[in-house]
């Protein structure tokens, strides 16, 4: 019986269902408040706007699970976008090569974050805070603080495809969510990240070097931030060195709404994705009902706190409930009571 009960996946499925219920409730609420909200265009617009935040949230989830934090994502995205813009406008590079530059620069920034914080044992909060400034400054330097208008050459990535009505960027983001979840729950790297976030000392004493997985998480986060820069500039047809200010906080909010622990050791990429959707629906819905920008901020902030409170409550409740169900399902005599 012991190896038969599989509480963990069930608990995880319940969490995901809870988040989807919140999302559905929000959609229903705004549909009731505004008759224009419940239309395919609304959702396609939302979908085509979020790929940058989605891929950044994927990387952020991996970093948070391992017990770190990456505050540099917004600036690294802007740096990636800026270099992409400069490469295409000033040097006439094709979109593909320029995108590769953006991604590599992101990867480089992530590696620097990881190597310095892990190698020297400095809290990632500080190292990535430094990178937040450095990458932003570099983006201004590269663009001479000017937004670079790129034009149609970059647009296909962010433009909706004919039949699907979704852009290649959206599809790529969805694939990366699937990939990120796969890494987290099915690979040894993912298991190491969870273990490091739970008790790093135990990981070390189990003969595992915790440094490579931690650096890998930062590298992935950087790479995805660079990629987010590509998505963003294709959506805007321009490279904006001011882009992504405060994006790190939006990403952290989405990931935490998705139930990932800021203390490390617990998280789900798919739930982070739903977290992004919740924030996006909330913002779009509020715009639909005519909320002002300040009111949107107040309500979004309140929603973040409410979501985290609900998550904490659900955790307590889910644990208790699972045991109650288990107890009913398994008569006491079937327990391995006198194995000793």
């Amino acid at each position: 019986m012991r190896s038969g009960t599989n509480g963990q996946p069930r608990r995880r499925a319940a969490e995901c269902a809870g988040l989807l219920a919140v999302l559905a409730a929000l959609v229903a609420l705004f549909a009731a408040l505004s008759d224009r909200f419940l239309a395919p265009e609304t959702f396609l617009t939302i979908a085509n706007q979020i790929p940058d935040l989605v891929v950044i949230a994927v990387g952020m989830t991996l970093v948070l699970v391992s017990g770190g934090i990456d505050l540099s994502v917004g600036s690294v995205m802007a740096l990636g976008a800026s270099l992409l813009g400069v490469a295409m406008t000033d040097h006439g590079w094709p979109a593909g090569a320029a995108a590769l530059v953006a991604a590599s620069v992101g990867l480089g920034c992530g590696l620097v974050n990881g190597v310095i914080s892990v190698g020297a044992g400095i809290p990632s909060f500080i190292v990535t805070l430094g990178m937040l400034e450095i990458a932003r400054g570099a983006a201004y330097l590269a663009t001479r603080s000017q937004t670079q208008y790129i034009g149609p050459a970059i647009e296909p990535i962010g433009a909706p495809l004919p039949v699907l009505h979704l852009s290649p960027a959206v599809l790529a983001a969805l694939a990366l969510v699937a990939g990120g979840q796969f890494i987290l729950s099915r690979t040894v790297l993912g298991r190491h990240l969870v273990a490091i976030g739970s008790n790093e000392s135990a990981v070390r004493l189990s003969g595992i070097d915790p440094r490579p997985p931690k650096i890998a998480a930062f590298a992935i986060s950087g790479l995805l931030s660079g990629l987010a820069g590509v998505f963003q500039s294709s959506r805007l047809s321009a490279a904006d060195p001011n882009g992504g200010v405060g994006l790190e906080l939006a990403a952290i909010a989405a990931v935490v709404i998705g139930g990932t622990s800021l203390m490390g050791g617990r998280g789900s990429v798919v739930n982070s994705f739903i977290g992004v959707l919740i924030i996006a629906v909330l913002q779009t819905g509020l715009a639909h009902v005519g909320a002002t920008e300040p009111a949107k901020r107040v309500i979004t902030g309140a929603a973040i706190v409410a979501a985290v409170l609900a998550d904490a409550a659900r955790h307590r409740w889910a644990a208790a409930d699972l045991w109650r169900r288990l107890r009913r399902a398994v008569p006491a005599t079937a327990m391995p009571a006198d194995r000793l």
Binding site: V194, A195, S198, N199, S201, A202, L205, G265, R266
Partner: peptide
């Protein structure tokens, strides 16, 4: 507790 187990994990 400190060096061995990940207490919150299965």
């Amino acid at each position: 507790k400190e060096d061995g187990l990940m207490l919150a994990r299965p």
